[in-house]
Structures are given as C-alpha cells and as structure tokens.
C-alpha cells in the first residue's frame, strides 16, 4: 500500500515561510479553495492556511538553538480525525493514504479538529467547512504537469529543499531513505496516530583540531625568516654533554 507523505528536514529549514504562502496560493485557487481571509486589511487578520511555520527556542543563552518548525496535516496512518467524523466527509484514501475532507459533505461541526492532536485542521470561516493540507492531491496526479513538477506546491517552493515528498511505505523511496538515514521521527508518537509525515532532526558538523595541525612543516613564517633562531650564545646541550 502506498502512503504519501512529507518529510521535513529541520536541519536545513530556515523558517522562510515560503511553504506557507505557496501552499496558500496553490490551494486557494485549487480544489480545496477558496481559502478565505478575514480582516485582511484590519485588526488581527486571520485566514485559512494549511501549513504554518513556527519558531521554538531550545536551551538557554548562549547555548540556544532556534528551531523553525513547519507543520501541516501529517496524514496519519491511523488518523483519529477520520472515524469521528459523523458525515464521512473526513476520509483517508485507500490508494495513497492521503487524508482529505470532502467539502461537499462536511457540515462544519469541527469534531475532527478536536480529534486531531496536531492542530492542523482549520475551519474555513467563509465556506464553513473543514479544510487542511491535501498533499496537493490536485497537483501530484496532474498528468498535464511535467513529471518533476507533480509535487506539492510547498515542496517545489522550499528554497532549502527541506521538504521531501514521497511514499514512506516504499523502502526504496527517497523519503524512506531519508527517515532511515537521518533518524526521522514522527510527532507525538504517544497517541498511536502513526503520522506519515516525519521530521529529520538537526545534525551537527563539528571539527577537532589536533595540535600537530597547528605546528606545520609548511609554515610560511620560516620562509620569511621570522621563526627566530636562538642566538649562538644561548645555552645548549653542547655545553654540558661530552660523550
């Protein structure tokens, strides 16, 4: 069985928010849209976005890590948002594991959003139906697009390619490999939702400097004569040994 998902590499995400607005622009005019914005030019503007990038600080100064953390629907393998939906509007596709909302069935009861521990469903306040990341289902199967572009909008936009897309059930896929190689992990594993999206942790490159790299045979100071030679009169072994 196929399970499409995103794998997000926190090691390179710089928090640029490109995935946030590329998602918005694709989806507002796509099969999930339109995605309304309220008070767009007034106090406390708010709107429907499928993807948010948050910032966390880990540790204390000066050992602080700033972590940018993009989050959209994780397309859980066992999605609690689906069985609770009274209308069947919330569903998981058997073919590719994408969790979707059927906007024509949804009654806007919000119950599914309560059932999602990750806070990724958003009620569109204008259409009054539940929305969320569709994994750009209206792009990834669009045969009018060149193969390389049949990817979610956020994945294509991401300047650091921190967002990988693929089938996590296919052990040979790039996403599976990335999860395996880089200790990819799911969010809130404690709830058994088995999120399909995974996150790759920060990986640190450190160096070790060895003393002998600092004392060098190719030291140019030798050429310019500045590694001082001791004066002849300075004491030496010659003065004390006589074998």
């Amino acid at each position: 069985m196929t399970q499409l998902a995103l794998v997000i590499d926190l090691n390179v995400c710089v928090g640029c928010q490109a995935c946030v607005t590329s998602c918005k622009q694709w989806n507002t005019s796509g099969s999930a849209g339109p995605l309304a914005d309220f008070n767009p030019y007034g106090a406390d503007p708010t709107g429907t976005f499928f993807n948010r990038v948050q910032t966390f600080e880990v540790g204390e100064y000066p050992n602080t890590q700033t972590v940018h953390f993009p989050k959209s629907c994780l397309h859980c393998e066992d999605p609690p948002c689906v069985p609770v939906c009274p209308t069947g509007a919330s569903y998981k596709r058997a073919t590719d594991g994408i969790v979707l909302v059927d906007y024509d069935k949804c009654i806007g009861c919000k119950y599914c959003s309560w059932a999602c521990p990750y806070g990724v469903r958003e009620l569109d306040e204008e259409r009054k139906v539940m929305t969320k990341c569709t994994l750009c289902v209206d792009r990834i199967y669009d045969t009018a697009l060149p193969e390389a572009e049949r990817k979610p909008a956020c994945v294509l936009a991401c300047p650091t390619s921190a967002r990988l897309f693929g089938d996590i059930h296919d052990p040979a896929s790039a996403v599976s490999e990335a999860i395996r190689k880089n200790a990819g992990y799911p969010l809130m594993p404690e709830w058994g939702t088995k999120p399909s999206n995974h996150y790759l942790p920060r990986r640190k490159t450190a160096v070790r400097i060895h003393e002998d790299e600092l004392v060098r045979s190719d030291n140019p100071l030798k050429i310019d004569g500045l590694l001082p030679k001791p004066a002849k009169a300075e004491p030496s072994l010659d003065d004390v040994t006589s074998w």
């Binding site: 008070n39 106090a43 406390d44 948050q54 910032t55 966390f56 958003e122 306040e125």
Partner: peptide, 11 residues
C-alpha cells in the same frame, strides 16, 4: 515557542 507563525490568530 517564540512564534506560532502568525499574529492575528487562527482557527
């Protein structure tokens, strides 16, 4: 958390 990603609030 220092930013939830938006300031005006959301659903």
């Amino acid at each position: 958390q220092t930013s939830q990603g938006f300031l005006g609030g959301s659903f």
